[in-house]
Simulated scan of single mutants.
Amino acid sequence: MTLGRRALLASLAALPARADSPLRVLARQAAIHLTPPCEMYRRRHRDVVERGERLNRLVRQLSPEARLLSAWAWLDLSGEPLFLLLPRMEGRFYSAVLLDPFARAFEQVSNRTAGDAPPPCMIVGPTWKGDVPREVAPIQAPAPSMWLRLRIAVTDDDEDIDVARGLQARTLLETPDQRNERRILEMRELMRFRTIAPPEPVADWPEPRPAERFALFDEGVAMLAGYALPESDRQMVDTLASLRLRPGRRFDARAFDEADRATIVAGIADAESAIRDNGPRAPVNDPLHRAWTARTALSAPTDAEKP
């Protein structure tokens, strides 16, 4: 009796994938590297879509945690620049950090880098071209989607917390038009930007589907759309090209037969176990530790955000 093709594929898929299979090892590596952008994708969707936070608008937390008063914003830099204005901090620790799609601190403005009087900053996307006003410090982000996080140190004293809240309230994240309007009122100065505001950016990302077996791949590469990869990340992404993983595109599972898809799923499971069991003890810059941090403590302050 001849075994049919479907039955043969089913029997192959049912066989356990060898732990040293090159495809399984590659899938494990891909899952570890893509866990941070996947977690960033899910956090962005939760904040903006589920909680209704507006893109390019600061959300201020009025109650401190671990003696830090926090604010944050998801940035859409696919179009116009954004201006970040921090007040004088009078000796108080503060930190404004831009996290890239891998949840790494790409740029930091703090009392360590700018002293008590931080300059106004102009944050632009990776493809933006234009003139930068002389009085601002330019920051060219590597991706059109970035996470801005602001921390201001406080003591346990209620009066000190109120002072920090005032500093937080005076921290501004503005579009060119908002900055133009404010400066017209404050300084009677007209900037060289248009006076017709563009439409607000729209959160048009697909909903995360963590229950799907290749969701980690789909959401991880989706977060990398438009990312100007540094050389180290570019080498990693090139290595994963044989898995049909390309920034900004869905994982092409149809390019693999069912047996290979089962092997890839086994590799993803291997990565989950490694992140859970070995991530906490891995070196800080090891991909395993970064994946574990993104999975368990994405909102926790990085070293750049701690006094």
Rank of each mutant, 00 (worst) to 15 (best):
T293V: 14
T296W: 12
R67Y: 13
V97D: 06
I196M: 12
R192M: 09
A225P: 00
I268V: 09
S63V: 14
G226D: 08
D233T: 03
E90F: 14
I123Y: 05
L3C: 08
G4S: 14
T113F: 03
L240F: 03
D218L: 01
D76L: 10
E258A: 13
P283S: 12
D303P: 15
E212Q: 10
A297F: 03
P22I: 02
Q168C: 04
N180G: 13
A253Q: 09
R88W: 01
R276P: 04
P198K: 12
S78F: 02
V202C: 11
R249C: 15
N56V: 01
P230V: 05
R5L: 12
D238N: 13
F102C: 09
D277F: 15
R43D: 09
P208M: 03
R213M: 07
A137D: 05
A14S: 13
I32H: 09
R24G: 07
M223D: 12
D100W: 07
R28N: 12
G248M: 05
D260Y: 07
L298I: 15
W72I: 01
A269R: 15
A300P: 01
L243N: 05
A304W: 10
A114W: 07
C38P: 03
E207F: 10
Q168L: 13
S70N: 04
W128I: 10
A169P: 06
E272R: 09
S21I: 08
R54D: 08
L8R: 15
T296E: 15
L190P: 08
P301N: 07
G279P: 04
A259H: 12
Q178H: 04
R281Q: 15
D160Y: 00
M187K: 12
R246D: 10
F251N: 06
